[in-house]
Design a protein around this nucleic acid. Structure first.
Lengths: 129, 129
DNA sequence: TGTAAAGTCTATACCAAGTATAGAGTCAAC
DNA sequence: GTTGACTCTATACTTGGTATAGACTTTACA
């Protein structure tokens, strides 16, 4: 299949597919006579894997490591578990930060009301502290 | 004061201060004979305000709007309240997304254990679904 | 007074993970 | 034969900084 079809089947844009190839996430595929990229089912599976990983927030570098790991089926999967666990710790940490931020923002919302003037604005006063 | 002192007092790096100036967040300040930037207490206050806003996750564009608004003390502060409320909605939304992500990640962690081989890895199996 | 070190200047490149565009070539249908 | 859809490469742009090179200014010390 050509890149347009792969794009539709995977839900990635054409640009993104080419971008992943340049980043060595997707290996360079065969080309048609007219220099069009020709993909097969395996390309689609890899792309879906990449997309899944990206939706978890893994970086391209991390996904590259996962893809490398997958090429050695008999090695230990420790690094995979480790990556996911560390990522979960990071996400947990980020949630905590955002919750604190939300608290701060809610205090700011309470500190003012519409119909005030800028010079009386409770939000700005907090921001100037 | 020169930029190094402003940097220490504000906690922003020298590069960041110059970056904010280029982005029109900090207005161009006076220069010494040797072309060094010379700041005063008002620059420091503005910079602290910017830093505070950035710590809330406001974008440079949004901060610029706030600074513009501050220049008209007698106008309504509606836009300020609106900005913060919308930002809180976004943060709330992001927290929900991250919580869902954390759930997914925790399922993945449970799906595997160390000491498995790559071809048996529960995490990779989920990622390949 | 000379010089070395510290501070500052501008301009440019880099990061992540794409997105957007221009300008050219290819392919299929009518 | 030509129109339109598709694809190609290369390049620039996004965000919020960070890092660097190479030059200039100022300060400290002998």
């Amino acid at each position: 299949m050509k890149i347009g079809e792969l794009s539709k089947k995977s839900g990635c844009t054409i640009q993104t597919i080419r971008f992943y190839e340049k980043q060595d996430l997707l290996e360079a595929c065969n080309r048609s006579e007219g220099n069009y990229r020709i993909y097969d089912a395996s390309s689609l599976r890899t792309l879906q894997f990449i997309k899944q990983c990206r939706s978890l927030g893994l970086t391209i570098k991390e996904i590259k490591q996962l893809l490398d790991t997958k090429r050695n089926p008999d090695k230990s999967c420790f690094s995979v578990n480790n990556l996911i666990q560390q990522h979960m710790i990071d996400v947990t940490q980020r949630i905590a930060e955002l919750k604190q931020l939300k608290l701060t923002l809610s205090e700011m919302v309470l500190a003012c009301s519409d119909n005030r003037k800028v010079k009386e604005c409770g939000v700005l006063q907090i921001l100037e502290e």
